[in-house]
C-alpha cells in the first residue's frame, strides 16, 4: 500500500510546483547572448515511431516551418540500451551546446534498471514540455466497461491469465503494471514487453493481450475506429480536452483511475536537456526557443491530439521536480525489484 502513497505524493508535488511555475519560460526574454552556430543535433533516446520520436520530429517540423532557429535541427535516434546510448552521448559532449536530448521516463528508469553510469544531474535541464498521460485500455469486444470491473475480473481469474502488454521492460509501462497489481492481490498480470507503443496497441486490437497502458496518442486512432476501449486515466484529474473523439466520448469523459476505485497515478516526463556545462546564456536560448514552439497553434493541436497534460516548467523548479520524481522512481523500482543487481562502471 505504501507504494500507492508514494505515487500520490508524487502527483501532489507535481501539482504544487506547476501552479507556481507555468510562466517561467517568459523570464528569458532579455536579449540573446548566444545563438547556435551550426546544426543542432536533437537526440531521441528511443527507437523510431515511439512517442518521444514523434514529438521530436514534430518539434523539428514546427521549428523549421516557423523559422524559429537560424540553424537546422537534426533528429537522431539513439535508442540502444533502453536509451543509454543517447544519454551517454550527451553526457560525453561536455561543453558542446549544439546537442539537445528529449527524455521520457527512461532518464530515470534506464540508469536505475541497468546500472549504467549516468544520472540526469549530469546533463543540463532545459524545459519540461508536457506530461504524457497513461490510459488503461482493453479490447472493445471484451466485456469490461469500467476499471473496477476489469480489476475484479483479474482478481477472480486464474493467476497470470490476464496479459498486460507494454513498451520495454522495467520502464514506465511495467512500473504502472506493478502498481496496478497492488489492487489485484493476490493475482498477477503476465507482463509482455514489446518494442513500441504502436505495436502494443495493435496487439491489443488483435486480442493477443488483454489490456495495455498505452499513451493516448498511441491508441487514439484505434479508439476512434471502435476497436479499443479506454477504462481510466492514470492522473489525479480528468483530462482537460472536451472535444469529442468518438461519437459520444471525449478525453474528458474518461474517468480517473482513482474515481474508478483503482488508486494508481503516473505520468511521464516529456522534457528537454542539453549537454553538461552549458552556460546560462545557452540554456536561456533553448528555454526561449521551446517557449516559442509551445506558443504555436501546431503545438496546441499536437497537445490536444495526444491529450497531453500541458504542464511546463524550467530552471530551478524543473530541477526540483526532477529530483522529486527521480526519488519516486527509485522507490517504485526498488519495491518492484527492478533495481540493477550490480552497478557496472
Amino acid at each position: 500500500m505504501n507504494m500507492l502513497a508514494v505515487i500520490k505524493s508524487n502527483s501532489l508535488v507535481i501539482g504544487a510546483l506547476t501552479a507556481a511555475v507555468t510562466a517561467t519560460a517568459a523570464l528569458s526574454a532579455p536579449a540573446q547572448a548566444w545563438e547556435p552556430t551550426k546544426p543542432v543535433t536533437f537526440i531521441v533516446p528511443a527507437g523510431t515511431g515511439g512517442g518521444a520520436d514523434q514529438m521530436a520530429r514534430f518539434i523539428q517540423g514546427v521549428i523549421a516551418k516557423n523559422n524559429l532557429m537560424a540553424q537546422p535541427l537534426v533528429v537522431v535516434n539513439k535508442g540502444g540500451g533502453a536509451g543509454a546510448e543517447g544519454f551517454l552521448e550527451v553526457k560525453k559532449g561536455k561543453g558542446e551546446p549544439h546537442t539537445l536530448v528529449i527524455t521520457l521516463s527512461n532518464v530515470f528508469t534506464t540508469p536505475l534498471g541497468t546500472g549504467i553510469p549516468f544520472n540526469w544531474t549530469e546533463l543540463t535541464p532545459v524545459s519540461m514540455l508536457a506530461l504524457d498521460q497513461f490510459v488503461l485500455w482493453v479490447n472493445a469486444s471484451s466485456p469490461y466497461k469500467t476499471a473496477a470491473e476489469y480489476i475484479e475480473a483479474v482478481k477472480a481469474g486464474d493467476e497470470k491469465t490476464f496479459k498486460m502488454g507494454g513498451t520495454g521492460s522495467k520502464q514506465e509501462d511495467q512500473i504502472i503494471t506493478v502498481a496496478l497489481q497492488r489492487t489485484t492481490t493476490p493475482k498477477h498480470f503476465t507482463y509482455l514487453p514489446y518494442q513500441g507503443g504502436g505495436a502494443v496497441a495493435t496487439q491489443l486490437v488483435g486480442g493477443h493481450i488483454t489490456s495495455s497502458v498505452n499513451n493516448p496518442i498511441e491508441a487514439v486512432s484505434h479508439w476512434k475506429a471502435g476497436t479499443l476501449r479506454p477504462l481510466c486515466i492514470f492522473d489525479a484529474e480528468r483530462s482537460a480536452y472536451t472535444q469529442k473523439i468518438t461519437a459520444d466520448m471525449a478525453w474528458s469523459d474518461i474517468p480517473t483511475c482513482k474515481e474508478s476505485g483503482v488508486d494508481v497515478q503516473y505520468q511521464m516526463l516529456r522534457g528537454i536537456f542539453t549537454s553538461p556545462e552549458a552556460t546560462p546564456e545557452q540554456v536561456a536560448y533553448y528555454v526561449d526557443l521551446f517557449a516559442k514552439v509551445m506558443a504555436t497553434d501546431d503545438w496546441k493541436g499536437f497537445m490536444q491530439n495526444g491529450a497531453f497534460n500541458q504542464k511546463t516548467m524550467s530552471g530551478d523548479d524543473f530541477r526540483s521536480w526532477l529530483t522529486a520524481t527521480e526519488d519516486t522512481h527509485r522507490t517504485l523500482m526498488s519495491e518492484a525489484g527492478f533495481l540493477a543487481k550490480k552497478a557496472t562502471n
Binding site: D53, Q54, R57, F58, G198, V220, S221, H222, A225, G301
Partner: peptide
C-alpha cells in the same frame, strides 16, 4: 500506425506534421 522500417517511421513523422494521424 506501425512503421516497418526507420524510413517508414520518418514518413509516419511526416504524416503527423500535417496533422494526419496514421491508424485505422
Amino acid at each position: 500506425g506501425i512503421p516497418g522500417s526507420p524510413t517508414a517511421a520518418v514518413l509516419l513523422g511526416g504524416l503527423m506534421i500535417w496533422g494526419l494521424q496514421p491508424g485505422p
